[in-house]
Amino acid sequence: MTSFIIQRLLQTIVVLFLVTIMVFTVMHMVPGNPILVLLGPSATKEQIALYTAQFGLDKPVLVQYFSWVSNVLQGDFGESIIFRQDIGELIATRLPITVFVGGLAYIISVVTGMTAGVIAAVKRGGFIDSLITITANLGMATPIFWLGILGIYLFSLQLGWLPVQGFTWLTVDLSKGIKQLIMPVLLLSTVPLAMITRQTRSAMLEVIQQDYIRTGRSKGLKEKVIIIKHALRNALIPVITLLGIQLGNLVGGSVLVEQVFNIPGMGTLLVQSMLQKDFLIVQSCVLIIATVVALCNLAVDIAYGFIDPRIRYK
């Protein structure tokens, strides 16, 4: 297992190196000049030259790339061209918000989704199964921004129960923070919850029909033990893969939900930076997201071994 982890970590480093080349190349190929965006229509040629030199954009592209990579390796992401702030600091304020909001949505979707999936599988063909399946399908099919707008209309404007927008850390103002979290967290959890429910249901259905489950029943094992101990554990492999992918999404944040609820997370940062061609931020964000996704995949692979002891890596 140790050698497998080391091997995967080395692969991850290669992947991240390729990501740096890819994101750097793409960002430099995309049209647009961030200095023109920064200076606006009153810019003079002298000003453009001054700021281009200040941000090192007058240097050859290869020099810019190696300078960026070497700085990142030393923990320095550089200074944002548009935000005029240290990118490390900028990400350090945005990332925790995205992870917190996304994390809550993740927990809700995993716990509720798996529970609903198991119940639907156990009660297959019944009313509860239909109810869960239809709700899950609706959850996957409904556009999130539309649900968000309806939610704001109903709960904020008509009923006045929840605030329209904003984010407050719970340590700063518990009540306000919770109220502001309810709608974005529920919306963020809608699609993953639906996906996990469906995935758990179909995986469980497959396992429940296996011979060893029948054997367990004939041995007189309690249904609860059969479902939780024997069936669920074996059904978890495809679910874990899905959970791993969803975990990676946590870091990127949801652009739509962050935009609609004015949450200052990674999603809005990425969009703003892309639109204004602040490529240093985009490069750094993509690199961080890629790192987290790669580590999540590694964690999923390791988890397989724990869940199903038959899986062993060499």
Partner: peptide
């Protein structure tokens, strides 16, 4: 096209 291209 996007605003960055127009800016160019």
């Amino acid at each position: 096209t996007d605003s960055a291209k127009i800016q160019e």
